[in-house]
Amino acid sequence: MPDSPVLDRREAVARLLRDRGELLVVTGLGSATYDVAACGDDPRNFYLWGAMGGTAALALGLAIARPDTPVLALTGDGDMLMGIGSLATIGARQPKNLSVVVLDNERYGETGAQPTATAHGVDLVAMARACGIEAPDDIRDMNGLGTLAERLRRTDGPLFANIKIDPREHPKVLPARDGAWLRSRFREAVLGKAP
């Protein structure tokens, strides 16, 4: 739908994470990781730099472990499509505190903007709904983002949202990429200091 409005990815992510409260955030490799880093670093962000296809599944394990804390998997359409089976896994498990949000530019942004399946009409919202996950229609405006941002802090999910974004690239904002350091920092923020 070339005439439909789309959102700027940095503005969209900044809106979602404004007043994030207790939200724990797992980011998919590539631009989603840079977008969240651009909002300001936080020890409760777990940035993936690889493990493509694993963002939603990792967030599911975290959500099961911390059932009273809202958890957000924020990723791109390429990562979501690679791990698309995890929507079935999440739908079967129904974790109330998990949201999966896709920044859908219909491109593999890291590798030269080759079209993903969503560029050819594959509908991630319909797939999530078919898996038993509540999902609003594709989000294309700031009103929709505001409603979503409020939902992310609640624990009456699971929730899926697909945000249609402009494929324009932004300057990369690179967070730390030492996985062992990131996981220790995250665990300390969530669980307290290791004995």
Partner: peptide
């Protein structure tokens, strides 16, 4: 492979 990622998340959350 989902399980590898899921258990990584579980451990991040203390499970």
């Amino acid at each position: 492979e989902e399980g590898v990622a899921l258990l990584a998340g579980a451990w991040l959350g203390g499970d």
